[in-house]
Structures are given as C-alpha cells and as structure tokens.
Amino acid sequence: MLAKRVVVCLDVDGGRVVKGTRFRDLRDVGDPAALAERYEAEAADEVVFLDISASVQGRATTLDVVSRTARRLFIPLTVGGGIGSRKDVGRALRAGADKVALNTGAVRRPDLITRAAEHYGAQCVVVSIDADRDPAMPSGYRVFTHGGRRPTELDAVEWAARCAGLGAGEILVTAIHSDGARHGFDLDLTRRVADAVTVPVIASGGAGEPAHFVHALTAGRADAALAAGVFHDGVLQVADVKAAIDAAALPVRPAGLPFRSTEA
C-alpha cells in the first residue's frame, strides 16, 4: 500500500528559503540546498521548491539554485514558480527537478498542462492551485494566481477537475486563508478537490501540529500533506508527524529506520 506522504516546501525568494504568513511578510530561514538535505535526512518523502516571486516579477525559475538543491537530493524534488511554457518545464527537469508545479502558467495557458504531460509524462506534471474562500463561487473557493495575489474567475474545485482532465498527474491545493495560521489544513477544500479528481492530491496551508496532517489524510482524503514554516522553525519534526500518521494506522515510510518497513 502506498505510504501517505509528508512533503516539505521550500519557498524560495532570491535564492534563499523564506517564510511568511498568508503569503506576506517574508523573512530569511536558510539555504535551499542545505535545508533540502536536512529534510531528506529527517525522512521527508518529498521536497517542493517554489520560487515564490518568479511569477510576480515575470521571470523564469532560478535554475542554478534548483540545480544546486537537486545535486544533493535522493528523494523527489518538485520545482514551481514562473513556469509558463513547455521549454520552462524542460529546463526545470534538466536542472534536476523530478516534477514541475504549474500554477499561474497553467491558468494562463491550460494547454500547457497537456503539452507537458504528453512530452514528459503526466507523473511529472503537478498543478498547484492557490485557493481562497469566496461564497460567490460554486464550491466556495476561488483560484488566485501570482503567488496568491491576483484573483481569477476560476472555481477552485472545478479548476482542479479540469486540470486532471488536461493531463495533470497530481494536484497541490493550498488554502490561502489557512496558510501560515497553523490552525490546520482546510479539510473541506481538500476533500472537495480529492473527491473531484482521480489523481493524487497534496494538501497545503495551515499545518501546526502532527494531528493536522492526520486530518488532511483522513477527513481531507489527501494522499500527501505539505508544510513549510512549521518545519523550518523546528515547531514540528518530520519524525513526529510520521509517528502520528503511523499511530492513526495509516501507511507511512518510517523516519530514522533505514532498511526497515512497518508494513507486513
């Protein structure tokens, strides 16, 4: 049985990992390559590298930093931020990404999802959706682009289903209103997206304690849950999150036990 995944996100700005609340008030927390290596050692199942200002500043992802991060990593690396064309996808993969996360680029040109999936395989195309509550939308959630700054006319759940239909291999859904608040993932949003697609779903935004991950993976029906700041601050250890998932009788790749598996 597939293990539920714990994903650590590195929000990168100007080559440094930064942390903010609700996508704002950024501060420096370290070097992406060093942090990625640390999280691999701590049994993170995947690392996501998001160049958070690329779309806003209208430029491509900082590939030299991606490359430096990938060089030391033997777990999957997803790269996002500023990926707007199939060439950008190819460049990110060649720099060492295993998957790319399309966000603003997919909203602007939905056929990019299909073109990337056809050429590189659906398994390396993640669509990242930043959603905020909005009662005017059918699902109650609106899609935002440009690092959560710019509203679109898209309903988050409908957009997720459309992305999966266009060839996305995975959906990463971030609740903007929960992000950084540490009160837990938006389980309603996560579950609606997970029920609307048949590809894996990664929950994001709001993790504050190990139980929040368990909730995202059970009530939220997510396949993976992602956090950034709580890990960077040392508020949470990946091992503690894994222990909570294991205690909830969910399959998990254990921390700190190389060459041992908990599953019979």
């Binding site: 597939l2 291999g169 396949d223 598996s261």
Partner: peptide, 28 residues
C-alpha cells in the same frame, strides 16, 4: 498515477531471489 513510496517484495517463486533486492526486500 501511482505516486509515492510503496512496499516492494521479491516474488517467492524465484529460488535465489532478485539480486537487486539483496538486503532491501520489503523496503519502500
């Protein structure tokens, strides 16, 4: 896609076992 860490088990009908899995049979 089948995405993530899953348990790999050597098939039991092979006498000596898959040499690639030496020491890591049953790992994720």
């Amino acid at each position: 896609p089948h995405m993530g860490w899953n348990v790999v088990r050597a098939a039991t009908n092979h006498g000596p076992g898959e040499p690639l899995l030496r020491g890591i049979d049953g790992e994720r």
